[in-house]
């Protein structure tokens, strides 16, 4: 067994579903989570919901973060949630960031997305929310 007397690092998957090619925000969040002690599995651009869920299961993550700017969130996020449920992995919390209108955000939260961050959210807020969600998953 490897040595480990300390707390085990939390693992988080950061992925961009859909077709937009802007991953600056996702990278900034990945870096901030790294600096907060997370092991960030950075899956990158243009992931299908199937790929995201498979990565989450193989990597045994405590948390999933989705970033989207393309406007396809109402199609793609519920798909991710449905696939997690199908895989009996609905216990993995999902948070999201990007350009998401308030009305959509309300509906997505009702559907099970645990937190949604718009432009201008501080990294501190994202990190502290991620820490809280990851703890609740364990």
């Amino acid at each position: 067994m490897p040595r480990n007397t300390k707390v085990s690092p939390r693992r988080v998957l950061i992925a961009k579903p859909g077709l937009d090619g802007h991953d600056r925000g996702a990278k900034v969040v990945a870096r901030a989570l790294r600096d907060a002690g997370f092991e960030v599995i950075y899956a990158g651009l243009r992931q299908t919901p199937e790929e995201i869920v498979r990565a989450a299961l193989e990597e045994d993550v405590d948390l999933i973060g989705l970033s989207i700017l393309s406007g396809a969130h109402m199609a793609l996020f519920p798909k991710v949630l449905a696939l997690l449920k199908k895989e009996k992995a609905a216990d993995i919390p999902v948070f999201a960031g990007g350009i998401i209108p308030d009305e959509d955000a309300r509906r997505l939260k009702k559907a099970g997305i645990r937190a949604i961050f718009g432009p201008g959210t501080s990294l501190e807020e994202i990190v502290s929310t991620a820490q809280r969600l990851a703890r609740s998953a364990a």
């Binding site: 690092p9 990945a30 870096r31 989570l33 790294r34 600096d35 907060a36 002690g37 997370f38 092991e39 960030v40 599995i41 950075y42 899956a43 990158g44 992931q47 299908t48 199937e50 790929e51 498979r54 990565a55 990597e59």
Partner: peptide
């Protein structure tokens, strides 16, 4: 410093979801 990590090797991995 933080014990954290960015694990980025998966990006190069082609999608074989099924």
């Amino acid at each position: 410093y933080s014990g954290g990590s960015v694990l980025g090797d998966r990006i190069r991995f082609d999608r074989r979801a099924d």
